[in-house]
Nucleic acid binder design. Structure first.
Length: 110
DNA sequence: CCCGTGACTCTAC
DNA sequence: CGTAGAGCCACGG
């Protein structure tokens, strides 16, 4: 079993993402106190599976959907994001997660 | 202990 | 703005 402590922090970071907003894996990891563990976030999500997490709000650093274009997960994530008003074009979120000051504003600074 | 795999990231071209 | 390669982290065979 992996560190449930870290896992819990990752989940908390994901739940902290505001509705209609997205965050990158690395960003979530850093927010969870695990800098450079983006892949751990990925594993945590895959392991959680059916947990009550807004996993669809987690995208890659480029704003791209992490799933393959023809994957079911891709369509599901795309659908959920659109349902929240997030604009998507060619499998990519129009607004990159790590860009503007809006980010710092929403991500509750220390 | 080495190696392959993955819902990743960064840099170079 | 696109692809290609190396780097990283955790996990299982």
């Amino acid at each position: 079993m992996a560190d449930l402590h870290a896992r819990a922090r990752i989940y908390a970071a994901i739940r902290a993402i505001p509705r209609g907003q997205v965050a990158g894996y690395g960003h979530v990891a850093a927010r969870a106190g695990l800098p450079g563990r983006a892949r751990m976030v990925c594993q945590a999500l895959a392991a959680s599976g059916d947990a009550d997490l807004p996993w669809h709000r987690v995208v890659r650093s480029d704003g791209r959907i992490a799933f393959p274009k023809d994957s079911r997960g891709f369509r599901e994530q795309c659908r959920r994001l659109k349902a929240e008003g997030v604009a998507i074009a060619r499998g990519r979120v129009r607004i990159p997660p790590s860009a503007p000051s809006l980010d710092e504003l929403l991500w509750s600074p220390p």
